[in-house]
Design a protein around this nucleic acid. Structure first.
Lengths: 327, 327
DNA sequence: TTTAACTGCGTAAACGATTACGCACCAGGA
DNA sequence: TCCTGGTGCGTAATCGTTTACGCAGTTAAA
């Protein structure tokens, strides 16, 4: 049933019907109610495609992110996408999700088409990576808003950042380990984790000089391997800060297998506070990141840009150290 | 730049340009190449909205699922959505995702609008739940294809089912425990897990008579609570089959806390084979479910329906028992 | 040479909504 | 009575494509 058919059926013009649904233009309350009632009866609904086309907006936003390299390793994303999905739905928008294949240097052209043809009103990108620059150019050319979730640079108009928060929390982690009497610190880094490193160093204070840093990743295996390497190169380490929980749990396993007690011989602190952190053995002391809120606020920030309104509240993104048994 | 502007600029009709991009209609190879080259030069791209509107299709599919009740408990979904995202991208389609709030009885009206206004070409639903029936009706009214991922009913045109596979694997789990000499079996059920129960019973053979069944859910907490209840009501149990890994890991923790050794006192088998199953303590013996493939095949099945083509291969969805240390 | 079939392209009518503009009507003040 | 301003609604143009149809030109067979 199109608007023309429906208009003929109830004897009103298409303009009136359109007005009854869109809320724009002048229409009497009685007619509006009548139209909506009849529409419910006849089963008429405005076609979103047609509406989008003339309005030049789609009520749809997109979320772009790297597909996890190892299938089931990126638990972080689960909670993040929950926040994104909920916030989007709550505000009455639709959500497209699009992943770029692991290791891709350029954004898939479908992604670019999406913004170039204005099939979305804006987008959120998980980390500011090389492939995203192409999207930024496309977005600028269309005057399309976008926001990045990123922890390595300070927050601004287009980036929702936890840099400060993470740095602060990482510093707490360092200070906590020092307070515990640990003097030989090590760290397994992730990819975008300059802030964690800097904060951790700061928290360690003078003991930062002893810090052994090893590159990691996002998989249990990477964590395990890094722990083994560290143990070999720096046998004296007595505590370990990992850039994420998956890394930490992988490391703990490797440590235990190597006959190293956790936390007696080496205390381990993770970052993220995934649900499984409570159920690792020993339960993981870690930095709680507000993953759900990060997702939710990123879309709120985007929608504020789209609707040209200010953010109603300031994002609540505090990160805290939660102490369990691994440190 | 619209098709009209572009057509004037290069001195050809809009029809020709359209044909150069769509591949439909008669056009000489030379002109086609010329048009595309000029388009690249001028930066012209067909507007997807307008194209969708007249074509009555959107190259977009949707994935509908329950948002996890406890935020970070539903790890299963991560890998599933990876499979869905990859398969969608590989076939050149766009993906909308939409969650229904936990516990909702009816589908959000935005969801229904999406299918009623044909903003998508088809959709995949994660489990056949009450709220999905409304979508089915809407889809039927639009002759829109859809597929359910569901383990409780046999596979058919619209449902990708693991029922048989899961039943078989669950039966292996039962048989394996019996072979281990366990005689007092217990099970923590999930929500949609009739098949697991039936299969497990079958595998237990005569010992199924002793089976104690307790309802669970999808959270660590639910698993822990169920284990405590079981231990109280049936102190003699010596093995435990859990409907998913999260439940199992929660149960193991509770068992250990209650002074019960795993697997010596009670052997535990999970289901899903999440990455963390390898890193629980003890590492979890579990049923490996091809989560990624389930996702990928559900969209392949949907696209086959949309494109009215047969499935190229038969889905590979075998479930296997992977033995680690918890049983 | 005539005819038929085919090829390549253009004209114009869709697709299903929104909205600028204009018209008719009514109320209130001069 | 006339004018002004506001209200409610309809007409028709518009958004950016696709595609049915038609026309001119070419080729091949009769």
């Amino acid at each position: 049933m199109t608007i023309v058919q429906f208009s003929e059926r109830i004897g009103l013009s298409t303009a009136t019907i359109s007005r009854a649904f869109s809320g724009n233009g002048r229409i009497s309350e009685t007619t509006r109610l009548y139209v909506r009632e009849q529409a419910a009866l006849c089963g008429y609904r405005p076609n979103l495609q047609a509406r989008n086309m003339v309005r030049r907006q789609t009520e749809t936003i997109a979320f772009f992110y790297d597909a996890p390299e190892k299938l089931d390793s990126d638990y972080y994303l689960g909670e993040l996408t929950c926040g994104i999905g909920d916030a989007t739905r709550e505000r009455g928008r639709y959500l497209q999700t699009f992943t770029v294949p692991p290791g891709a240097a350029k954004a898939p052209s479908m992604m670019v088409d999406l913004v170039l043809s204005r099939s979305i009103d804006g987008f959120v990108v998980n980390l500011r990576q090389p492939w995203a620059e192409e999207l930024v150019m496309a977005a600028e050319s269309q005057a399309m808003p976008y926001v990045f979730i990123d922890n390595t640079r300070p927050g601004d108009d287009v980036t929702l950042s936890l840099m400060e928060e993470i740095e602060k929390a990482s510093s707490q982690a360092g200070a906590y380990l020092v307070k515990l009497g640990r003097r030989r610190p090590a760290m397994i880094r992730g990819i975008h984790d300059e802030g964690k490193l800097a904060g951790f160093r700061a928290g360690l204070g003078p003991h930062a000089a002893q810090l052994a840093v090893h590159p990691g990743g996002k998989t249990f295996e990477a964590g395990g391997q890094a722990a083994i390497d560290l143990l070999r190169d720096y046998p004296a380490i007595d505590c370990l800060f990992c850039a994420n929980d998956v890394l930490a749990i992988g490391a703990i396993r490797a440590l235990l297998d190597a006959g190293c007690h956790v936390p007696e011989d080496v205390a381990v602190i993770g970052c993220d506070d995934l649900a499984m952190a409570r159920y690792s053995e020993p339960p993981l002391t870690t930095l709680n990141l507000p993953k759900y809120n990060i997702g939710a606020w990123s879309v709120r920030k985007l929608l504020a840009l789209i609707d040209k309104e200010p953010l109603s509240h300031y994002p609540d993104l505090a990160c805290t150290l939660v102490v369990r048994r691994s440190a």
